[in-house]
Design a protein around this nucleic acid. Structure first.
Lengths: 223, 223
DNA sequence: TCTATAAACTGAACGCGTTCAGTAAGGCGC
DNA sequence: GCGCCTTACTGAACGCGTTCAGTTTATAGA
């Protein structure tokens, strides 16, 4: 019984790792399900026995990455950074570094905006992964004793997550050498983001903040 | 000669209109190139003689829409709206109304973030259309005598265009009845956008504005 | 009017992701 | 050991977008 499920688990892992290797080497689109099966020495149908689609292979990669990243991110957050900006910088660069070897694969994930498409970062299929990811921003915010405005605070993790997704999207399609444009974008945008969050605590900004919170409620709230 | 090109032009138009009708009825993905050819009474190859791909049909629709929209938008801008917010509101709602019958088709256009994919709003293939679209925001800005900060002004049309794309993207996937969520989003976000533009003129905001302009230069500037 | 050359098509064939009816094989009750 | 059921696979076939070697059609030039 254990041997049975174990063998099965091995086959699954073999197919996944073979697929990821091929995706890395020649890109997601260029790689064929038949190639994956041949390389893993199974029949075409076997890949579909374990993964319901080609996309599902990427989703499995995404889930695995998130699981591997979680301790890395926890470790990064445990280091005493001096402020939110430093923590966000560390979080995001850690992710980019981690995904570097699979940048092209990530583009398959980021390519779709349709929340109905399972590979979309906004899809139901990737919900669990997304929510865990948003948690890491919650932690980055909680690491200070700084009080964020009560109305805005519950939305901040999701807002920062969206910001991060924007950076990653830019990075995925960044053709500049070493993706230096992305790093410039990060250096330029991060101070603005953190500055805006700081500004939002000023009494003077209450009206604008109120409008913003209403906007966020409209986006994430019920119909 | 005229009859020849005319006949050819008719065939092209027939294929395009047949395709768009089918897309409208049953959606982009469900519709088959073979169906389009059959319905238009030509061979499968003929559709590829006129349109290099299924996507190209959508791109032709996009180009045609933009051409039809231009006079509509000019007319809307000619009406004396009291401020930028009113003009932007008019521009965006006019577009949404225009695209209403083809909402699902638009989702095929909005589905891809990859600037390398021809259907992406950021692609080279849609560049001409995009630039004309950005022009309409230039006009909306120029309609007042209001002076925008010299450093920020050149970027504003592209920024507003991105804002509009966000709204349209939300609208395309908005499942609420009559897409009322989108309209709520528009009502909530537009005041913020125009308020921020106003605030940017304040001397107090100079440092933040400078950061923002640097950010925009980093995004749109050279490597 | 005839001919050659380009434009306007044709439809079989290819490669792909995906499906599915079928087959092997391991474990469990007897 | 024997039947039986569930799990693990097999590979041919389907439908799709796309390609391409042809065939027809129209017209410009002799």
């Amino acid at each position: 019984m254990t041997t049975k499920t174990q063998k099965s688990e091995e086959t699954r892992a073999l197919i996944l790792s073979t697929a990821l290797a091929l995706f890395r080497e020649q890109g997601f689109e260029k790689t064929t399900m038949r190639e994956i099966a041949a390389e893993a020495d199974v029949a075409l149908g076997a890949t579909y026995y374990y993964f319901s689609s080609k996309d599902a292979l990427v989703l499995a990669f995404y889930a695995q990455s998130q699981a591997e990243l979680e301790p890395l991110l926890a470790e990064v957050l445990a280091r005493k950074h001096k402020n939110l900006q430093a923590r966000l910088h560390a979080l995001i660069t850690t992710k980019l570094e981690y995904f570097q070897p699979n940048r092209s694969l990530l583009s398959a994930l980021a390519a779709h905006t349709d929340p109905g498409h399972s590979l979309s970062p906004f899809s139901e299929d990737s919900r669990a992964i997304r929510e865990r990811d948003i948690q890491s921003f919650q932690q980055a915010l909680d690491a200070d004793k700084v009080k964020y405005p009560a109305d805005l605070a519950p939305h901040l993790p999701a807002v920062l997550w969206i910001y991060q997704m924007g950076i990653i999207l830019y990075w995925v399609y960044d053709q500049s050498p070493g993706q230096r444009r992305t790093f410039r974008l990060l250096e330029k945008s991060l101070p603005i983001v953190t500055r805006l969050i700081q500004l939002s605590t000023l009494p003077l900004m209450k009206p604008l903040r109120k409008l913003t919170v209403e906007l966020l409620d409209a986006i994430y709230g019920p119909d």
